[in-house]
Write a protein that binds this DNA or RNA. Structure first.
Length: 363
DNA sequence: CGGTTTTGACCCGCGC
DNA sequence: GCGCGGGTCAAAACCG
């Protein structure tokens, strides 16, 4: 209830206490994704079929799952249209206003919500439409100007029958820039740009409003691959790096090709193992890799950083993520300790990517 | 020398 | 229409 009262945007970032991160669930869950609280959803997600999650996970890593299955398995309701449905959009704006009132940076939220009409299908349509756009990647970079003409073309793509009631006519115009499915995750790391097995070229950097830390923009260097990622540091907790992936790789991970850890990480390890493995490595590499691998399957996934504050507090692992996908439930003893979910204080990209984070669907 | 990073400028969407 | 902020471009600098 208190949660309900709390607007996600009103959530006090500074309320975040690394030492308390285990006291409750992730804000996403608390505020943004009631579905997760819904036992029913939990089934697909964590309680009932932990294995299903695993399987989905693995499967999806292997690209053998369709989005629906995946979304079911992962309970990616947050990525579903519901989250971004026009009505919700309305709510969102309200929340944004509230947020603004609360003095919380919400700009990105509103933006993304509108820009990222990630309906379950949108991943398809958007990617297709985007594909058109992405194909340009070659001539791409100069396409800037072409974008405008292109706009008209892709407007249908958007499947905007929904039409974002909120913007009405505007919606049509803005179809121009469609975004690939995106998802973000947090990583506790000292390094901004975490290795994920892919090669990236930095193409921009911008100062982030309300944050002393800049946001860096990277693009996959592989030809024809239009995946981008943004990396920024949480200003509430500088030790946390927020990485946002957009799009999907249309190639294999270079690391994989080399027969690197990829197989182990992606194909063989169970989620639980993942955590362990990741923590052991003290690097976010694996997680990134794994994430980027299944990235194609999801519209928007939120992965939460797991930190060790509990017992390993002092250790402050380099990086550790906790995925609500992979570690559905404390399958194992210590896991329980380890799965301290971080209260994500960030209101920038994160919200941007996690619409559900920005509004509550339940009273 | 080719690839990557840096960085200022530019474009675009959105709110006022 | 204007200003703001996010996102991208592209030339120059840098690096191995």
């Amino acid at each position: 209830m208190s949660n309900e009262k709390k607007n996600p945007y009103q959530y006090d970032p500074f309320d975040y206490n690394p030492h308390e991160i285990n006291r409750s669930s992730f804000p996403f869950f608390n505020y943004g994704t009631p579905s997760i609280q819904d036992p029913q959803n939990l089934h697909g997600f964590e309680s009932d079929h932990p294995n299903s999650s695993f399987m989905s996970f693995t499967d999806c890593l292997h690209g053998s799952m369709d989005y629906n299955t995946l979304s079911r398995a992962f309970d990616m309701s947050c990525s579903s249209s519901e989250v971004i449905s026009p009505q919700l959009d309305h709510e969102n704006s309200k929340n944004q206003q509230a947020a603004a009132a609360a003095g919380v940076g919400d700009h990105s939220v509103g933006t993304s919500t509108t820009e990222n009409p990630s309906t379950p299908n949108s991943s398809v349509s958007s990617s297709s439409s985007e594909a058109a756009g992405s194909h340009e990647h070659e001539d791409s970079e100069k396409k800037k100007k072409e974008k405008q003409p292109k706009v008209a073309v892709c407007d249908e793509a958007a499947g905007d029958e929904e039409d974002k009631s909120k913007k009405g006519s505007k919606a049509k115009k803005k179809e121009k820039r469609q975004r690939e499915p995106r998802f973000a995750f947090l990583t506790k790391s000292e390094v901004d740009h975490l290795e994920d097995g892919y090669r990236w070229r930095k193409y921009g950097q911008k100062a982030v409003k309300n944050s002393p830390y800049p946001r860096s923009y990277y693009r996959c260097t592989t030809q024809k691959c239009v995946v981008k990622k943004r990396v920024e540091r949480s200003f509430q907790d500088p030790s946390i790096v927020i990485t946002t992936y957009e799009g999907q790789h249309n190639h294999q991970c270079p690391a994989t090709l080399r027969g690197n850890l990829n197989l182990n990480a992606v194909g063989m390890l169970s989620p639980n193992s993942l955590l362990t493995s990741a923590s052991l490595n003290g690097s976010a590499r694996f997680q990134h890799e794994f994430l980027t691998q299944f990235l194609p399957m999801n519209n928007q996934l939120q992965l939460q950083l797991q930190s060790h504050h509990h017992q390993d507090d002092h250790q402050a692992s380099n990086s550790m993520i906790y995925s609500n996908l992979v570690a559905p439930r404390p399958h194992h003893h210590q896991q329980q300790h380890q799965r301290q979910q971080l209260h994500v204080p960030d209101y920038g990209l994160l919200q941007d990517l996690v619409p559900s984070f920005g509004h509550k669907q339940e009273p």
